[in-house]
């Protein structure tokens, strides 16, 4: 199975997938940590994929989405963005709407 297929099956098998440096419990990079905080605040269940454990995935994910950095957030198989975009969407409430539109349960509505 090619790396592309491995990634594809992962993001199709899980509603929300975060390709990150480190794990949700122990993020190893500030940017990955920021997205983890946002997802935890919203109470969104997600799968963390630690790209530091697999160089093929670390490079493969960048080719897969034509996005040069980590972290990368996927919702229902669709690339949402990296740290900047996820934070911007969260602050504007767009992330919560996007998640609920996609049928992903969100616990905490962002304060306006």
């Amino acid at each position: 199975m090619s790396i592309h297929d491995v990634i594809k099956s992962d993001i199709e098998a899980n509603d929300v997938v975060l390709f990150m440096k480190g794990t949700p419990q122990f993020p190893m990079c500030g940017f990955s940590g920021q997205v983890v905080q946002i997802l935890d605040y919203l109470g969104v269940p997600y799968k963390g994929v630690n790209v530091l454990e697999n160089d093929d995935i670390r490079q493969g994910i960048k080719d897969f989405s034509n996005w040069p950095t980590i972290p990368q957030l996927y919702v229902k198989g669709e690339f949402v963005g990296g740290c900047d975009i996820v934070r911007e969407m969260f602050q504007s409430g767009e992330l919560q709407t996007h998640l609920t539109d996609k049928g992903v349960a969100v616990k905490q509505a962002a304060k306006a």
């Binding site: 034509n66 996005w67 040069p68 690339f79 963005g81 990296g82 975009i85």
Partner: peptide, 19 residues
């Protein structure tokens, strides 16, 4: 979209981004 906008900037940086 935001993703496309950022990709435009990243491609302008000719592979330096992330490296």
């Amino acid at each position: 979209t935001r993703v496309q906008q950022h990709q435009l900037v990243y491609s302008a940086l000719k592979g330096n981004m992330g490296g």
